[in-house]
Simulated scan of single mutants.
Amino acid sequence: MDSNLELLTQIAHGIAVHFGYTCEVVIHDLKKNDLDRSVVYIENGHVSNRQLGDGPSEIVLETLKKQPDVLKDRLSYLTRTDDGRILKSSTMYIRGKNNTVDYILAINYDITGLLTVDNALKPLLSTSETNGEARKPRKITHSVNDLLDTLIEESVSLVGKPVALMSKEDKITAIQYLNDAGAFLITKSGDKVSNYFGISKFTLYSYMDANKEK
């Protein structure tokens, strides 16, 4: 274990103990180039039902897709587990030489119980005015296959119509979303996406190029 990872595991353990069993702390190793098994350390994995050796989250794919210089820590956003629990999450990028992101330290705190209390109090505290729009929590996945399925679902939701009713422009929009999210970093994702949208691999690449030109 290198010194940075050793320090991160010490910090992760401290955070987990401090906040208790509803606080999951995860370390993703981006130095290994093993996307299928990016989780190298986890505390309180029961929160998201993940374990050591599980695959990446959407944030990990976005990290690999973007240039390190433009990445900023993402603090206090919402995520969602398979069984519908809502987590308050933060993601911190741990950098190594040449400013590359070597590790990701993620904190996922289960606030489902707190939201239940909040929902009970909200009718008593609400006014006729509303401020802002609710943001849909991101789903936490366990493997690259689960993650790809989730990203495809999100791309369809973005377009707002089933694949059978999509025009060429609709499919280009969906595929651009997948490309921006880093979906095509996943092995054999091109085959699955092509089959899902009913297009050839050649057409898939042309749609990706069409968006670059735009």
Rank of each mutant, 00 (worst) to 15 (best):
M1C: 04
D2K: 02
N4G: 00
E6S: 11
E6T: 07
Q10A: 09
G14Q: 13
I15C: 06
F19C: 03
F19K: 12
G20S: 08
Y21S: 12
T22Y: 08
T22E: 11
T22I: 05
T22V: 04
V25H: 05
L30V: 03
K32P: 00
D34E: 13
S38M: 06
V39I: 15
V39F: 04
V40Q: 01
Y41F: 13
Y41G: 02
E43M: 10
S48M: 03
N49H: 12
L52F: 14
G53Q: 08
G55L: 01
G55H: 01
P56E: 02
P56I: 02
V60F: 04
V60S: 02
L61M: 07
K65V: 00
K66H: 11
Q67V: 00
Q67E: 10
Q67W: 01
P68S: 04
P68V: 04
P68I: 03
V70F: 04
L71N: 02
L71I: 10
L71W: 02
L71A: 01
L71H: 01
L75E: 14
L75G: 00
S76C: 12
Y77D: 05
Y77L: 06
Y77N: 06
R80L: 15
D83L: 09
D83H: 12
G84C: 08
M92K: 06
M92W: 02
M92A: 09
Y93F: 15
I94E: 00
R95T: 11
N98V: 08
N99L: 12
D102F: 06
D102P: 03
L105F: 09
N108S: 12
T112W: 05
G113M: 09
G113F: 03
L114W: 03
L114I: 14
V117E: 09
V117P: 03
V117H: 09
V117R: 12
N119G: 05
L121K: 07
K122E: 12
P123Y: 00
P123K: 07
T127C: 05
N131C: 08
G132H: 09
K136H: 11
K139S: 07
S143Q: 08
D146M: 07
L147A: 06
D149W: 00
T150K: 03
I152D: 00
I152G: 01
I152Q: 00
E154V: 07
E154I: 04
S157D: 13
S157I: 04
L158N: 08
V163D: 05
V163F: 07
L165V: 00
L165N: 13
M166D: 10
E169N: 12
D170M: 08
I175Y: 04
I175M: 08
Q176I: 11
L178W: 03
L178G: 05
D180G: 03
F184T: 11
K188I: 09
S189C: 12
S189W: 04
K192L: 14
S194I: 08
N195C: 04
N195L: 14
I199G: 09
K201T: 13
K201A: 15
K201S: 14
L204K: 01
Y205E: 13
S206R: 15
S206F: 00
D209C: 09
A210L: 09
N211D: 10
N211R: 06
K212F: 10
K212C: 00
K212H: 07
E213F: 11
K214F: 08
